[in-house]
Simulated scan of single mutants.
Amino acid sequence: MHHLRYSGLAFDEQRAAFLGIVAADPLLNETLARVRDLALPDWLVVSGALYNSVWNHLTGKPPGYGIKDVDLFYFDDADLSYEAEDAVIRTAARHFDGLTLPVEVRNQARVHLWYPEKFGQDCPKYRNASESISFFASKTHAVGVRFDDGGELDLVAPFGLDDIFSFRITPNRAMDNRRTHEAKGARARECWPEISVVPW
C-alpha cells in the first residue's frame, strides 16, 4: 500500500507532496515552463496531466503513462467570439510544437456559450479560470496549477487532494455529469487498477 502513503495526511502536507511531484515530472516541467512563456491571462494547467502524473509517480509508472494531453485553461472575457479563441489556440499550437504531449487550450469565459449544444444542459457563466474546475464531473479531477507572481507553483484544489492521494474518484454533483464521471472512472481504472470509483 506504498502508493497510499500520502492518503489522509493534512492538506498542507499533501499540497507540498503534490507540487513536489508535479515540479519533478519532466513532461510537466517543460510544459509548465512553455505555458508561462505564452503568458495567457488567468491561465491554469488542469486535470488529467496533473493527477495522472501523481498516480504514475506513486505506482512507479513512467512519466506520461496514461496521459492523453495537457488541458490549459485561460480566462479572457474581453472578446467572446469563436474567432478570438481560435486565434489563441492556433498561436498556442505553434508555441507548444515539439512537446511530448498535445496541449488543449480553452477560454473559460466562453464555455457557457457552447456547452449547452455540446452536452445538452446549461453551464454557469464562469468568473475566472479557477471557478470552472469546481464544476468538473469528479471532485478528484478538480485540480490546477500555475506559477504565482514570485515564480512559485501555485495550486488550485477546491475539494482538496485526499481523493487523488487515496486513488479514489469521487462524484461532483454540481452538474448532471454522471456519464462523464463513470466514463473517466472506467478509463482510469484500466491504467491504474489501484483506483476505486465512488458511484454517482
Rank of each mutant, 00 (worst) to 15 (best):
W114E: 10
E104T: 10
R168F: 08
C123I: 11
F165Q: 04
P158Y: 06
R90C: 10
Q121A: 12
A129T: 05
R178W: 11
N128V: 04
L113D: 01
H141A: 15
T100N: 11
Q121V: 08
L155T: 07
N177Q: 15
K118N: 13
A183D: 14
A142D: 03
R178V: 15
R106D: 06
R179A: 15
R173I: 07
G144Y: 03
C123L: 11
E182T: 13
A174T: 12
G151N: 07
H112T: 00
Y126R: 10
R106N: 09
F159G: 07
P124L: 06
R110P: 00
E104M: 09
N128K: 09
L113A: 02
D176H: 14
T100H: 13
G160H: 07
N172W: 01
L155M: 08
D176W: 11
I133S: 00
D86Y: 13
K139G: 06
D176S: 14
F165W: 06
M175I: 12
V105L: 01
Q108F: 00
G120I: 02
F147T: 05
F165Y: 08
F119A: 04
S166Y: 02
K139L: 06
S166A: 12
L155W: 08
P171L: 03
K184Q: 15
F96G: 03
A129S: 15
C123Q: 12
D154L: 11
P124C: 07
P116Q: 02
R94H: 14
H112S: 09
K139F: 04
E182A: 15
S134C: 10
F147V: 10
K118S: 13
W114F: 14
D176L: 12
F119R: 10
A157P: 04
K184L: 15
F159P: 07
S134F: 04
F136T: 02
R110G: 00
L99M: 09
F147G: 01
A109K: 05
P116R: 01
G150S: 11
R110C: 02
S130R: 15
M175G: 12
I133G: 00
L155S: 08
F167T: 00
F147Q: 02
N177R: 14
N107M: 01
A93D: 13
A157W: 05
H181C: 03
S134Y: 04
T140I: 07
T180C: 11
R173H: 12
H141I: 09
A92D: 05
N107G: 01
R178P: 03
S130Y: 09
R110F: 00
C123F: 15
L155I: 07
Y126H: 13
L161D: 04
E131D: 10
D154W: 14
R146G: 05
A186V: 10
G185K: 00
V156Y: 02
K118I: 14
R110Y: 01
D162Y: 07
I164P: 01
L99R: 03
I169M: 10
V145M: 05
I89C: 11
V156N: 05
A186G: 11
V105D: 00
D176Y: 11
D149I: 10
A87M: 12
K125W: 11
T100K: 13
A129M: 06
P124I: 03
A183I: 12
V156C: 10
E117T: 09
T180P: 00
F119W: 13
Y115E: 03
L155H: 08
P116W: 01
G160V: 05
H141M: 12
D154E: 15
A87G: 12
R173M: 10
